[in-house]
Simulated assay, not measured.
Amino acid sequence: MSTESSSITLQSPDGASAKLSLHGGHLLSWKPAGAPEQLYLSPRSEFAPGKAIRGGVPVCFPQFSDRGSLPKHGFARTLPWELVQQQQGKDDALAVMRLRDSDATRALWPHAFELELSVRIGGRTLDIELACENLGDAPLQFTTALHTYLRVADLDAVSVEGLAGLRYWDNIKKADALQRMDLLLTGENGVLDLDRVYFGVKERPLLVAEDRRQVAFRHQGFDDTVVWNPGPERCAQLPDMPPEGWSEMLCVEAACIGRPIELPAGESWVGRQSLELLRPR
Rank of each mutant, 00 (worst) to 15 (best):
V57Y: 04
L150C: 11
D176I: 01
L20M: 11
S12N: 07
G56W: 01
L39S: 11
M97I: 05
E188F: 03
W169I: 09
T105K: 08
L10Q: 10
Q237S: 14
W109M: 05
L155P: 02
A157G: 07
A164M: 06
P230M: 06
G231N: 04
Q237N: 10
D137T: 08
L238V: 14
P243R: 14
A164F: 03
S21R: 10
S42P: 07
L20I: 09
D224P: 07
S29K: 05
G122C: 07
A145Y: 01
L22K: 11
K174Y: 04
L263P: 08
P13E: 09
M1I: 06
P205E: 13
A18D: 10
D137L: 04
G231L: 02
L206D: 07
H219P: 00
R180F: 04
F47N: 13
A112Q: 14
A104K: 14
E46P: 00
R213K: 15
R44S: 11
W269G: 08
G123S: 11
T225K: 01
Q38K: 14
R44W: 10
L263Y: 12
G165F: 06
D211L: 12
S17D: 05
P58Q: 10
G24M: 11
A164D: 15
M241H: 08
R98G: 02
F217G: 00
G24P: 10
R213T: 01
K90A: 15
Y168I: 01
D66V: 07
K51E: 10
S17V: 02
R234C: 01
S102E: 03
Q237G: 03
V57N: 05
G122Q: 09
V160K: 09
A164P: 02
P32G: 09
P280A: 09
W269T: 03
E267P: 00
G122L: 07
D193C: 10
S12Q: 06
D182W: 06
T143Q: 14
L183I: 07
Q63R: 07
L184K: 15
P139L: 06
P239T: 11
E276Q: 15
D182C: 06
L207W: 02
G136L: 06
F113M: 09
S102Y: 04
G89W: 11
D176W: 13
A112G: 01
A138V: 13
E133W: 00
D92R: 06
D92S: 15
R180G: 08
L79N: 08
R204A: 13
R151S: 13
L146W: 05
R272V: 12
G55A: 08
P32H: 12
I121V: 14
L263R: 11
L163Q: 12
L166G: 08
E233P: 00
S45R: 13
D137M: 01
D176M: 15
K19C: 10
E37A: 14
V197E: 01
R204P: 04
A35P: 08
S21A: 15
E46F: 01
A76E: 08
L79T: 03
T225S: 13
R218C: 07
D211I: 00
G245E: 04
Q141A: 09
